[in-house]
């Protein structure tokens, strides 16, 4: 398919500009290696002092709400668990990984704030519904729009044209539709391709690739639906509204999947909780992102 080829080529073009942190890659390898132990993971973490400091900060923050204090990497790895450490390492390094992809269209702090809102809300919803792994959807939420950064960096003229179309439309044209009109593909597809080339878990690929097309999810329909809802709630948190009319519509199939309706009480609870958490989480997950590389 021609579109697909274009997407693959586009993502190949950023190879070398976006690199996952060394510590994440190492942790990832160790966890997949049946012969490795928790101690090996802890050792890999310890070799990156700045990551170690940030990991301990997150471990002791309200993010996990752990009662005992975590003062060593060994303890962090055993209490949090290697699976969650892997998600965490990816989440903590993703913002700085994209420093090599600056753009003039959106300020990085604004971009990551939306992503982080989506992550936090996906996590809250996962806990409420009990159907998805909260840590996995947190990471998926944080990464859901990364294709946007590739498009903004590689195809700035077309990306701007898409943004202008959204502003020109009274009919609430969503950005992914505008991208399809201008480019023939959208940021969800680009993000999924990036994650595929990085060999990240299929759950992430599906959530990123289908957060605007939940009907096409194959193996992780619940996670995809959750990130879809979280993305819209994130828009509400961002512009500080509780009125669903103010943002893009939520695909009703997403609610059905969790046996819920678009209940206004749920919206209020979740949006308010996310708004309370965001300030601290920005420090934990985004602060190290080099904002200077953003437009200005």
């Amino acid at each position: 398919m021609a579109d697909n080829e274009n997407i693959v080529k586009l993502v190949r073009g950023v190879e070398g500009l976006v690199t996952l942190s060394h510590v994440f890659v190492r942790i990832n390898q160790l966890i997949d290696d049946p012969d490795s132990s928790m101690a090996d993971v802890a050792k890999a973490v310890s070799q990156d002092p700045s990551f170690t400091v940030r990991l301990l900060r997150v471990a002791n923050s309200s993010f996990y709400g752990l009662s005992s204090s975590i003062d060593t990497v060994d303890k962090a790895v055993s209490v949090i668990g290697t699976g969650r450490i892997r998600s965490l390492a990816l989440s903590m390094s993703v913002a700085s990984s994209f420093a090599g992809l600056p753009n003039d269209l959106v300020a990085m702090d604004n971009f990551w704030r939306h992503s982080l809102y989506c992550a936090v809300i996906a996590r809250i919803l996962a806990r409420k519904t009990g159907k998805c792994d909260p840590e996995a959807v947190f990471t998926a939420g944080l990464l859901h729009d990364i294709g946007e950064l590739v498009i903004f960096n590689r195809l700035p003229e077309q990306a701007k044209e898409a943004l202008l179309r959204v502003l020109d439309s009274v009919d609430d044209l969503p950005i992914f539709e505008a991208e399809r009109q201008v480019l023939g593909f959208d940021h969800a597809q680009v993000g999924a391709e990036l994650v595929r080339q990085w060999n990240l878990p299929p759950l992430l690929m599906e959530c990123i690739g289908h957060h605007h097309s939940i009907g096409e999810a194959l193996d992780y329909p619940h996670e995809v639906a959750l990130v879809h809802i979280a993305n819209i709630f994130a828009q509400m948190a961002e512009i500080d509204t509780l009125d669903p009319e103010d943002v893009s519509a939520i695909d009703l199939r997403a609610w059905v999947m969790f046996g819920m309706g678009a209940d206004l009480d749920i919206i209020e609870d979740v949006v308010r909780e996310a708004q309370e958490e965001i300030v601290e989480l920005e420090k934990l997950f985004i602060d190290n992102a080099p904002e200077k590389s953003a437009a200005n």
Binding site: L105, V106, N110, R113, L163, I175, I239
Partner: peptide, 9 residues
């Protein structure tokens, strides 16, 4: 209200 995604444009 528009999202901050649109600020720069």
């Amino acid at each position: 209200r528009l999202r901050s995604l649109h600020n720069n444009v």
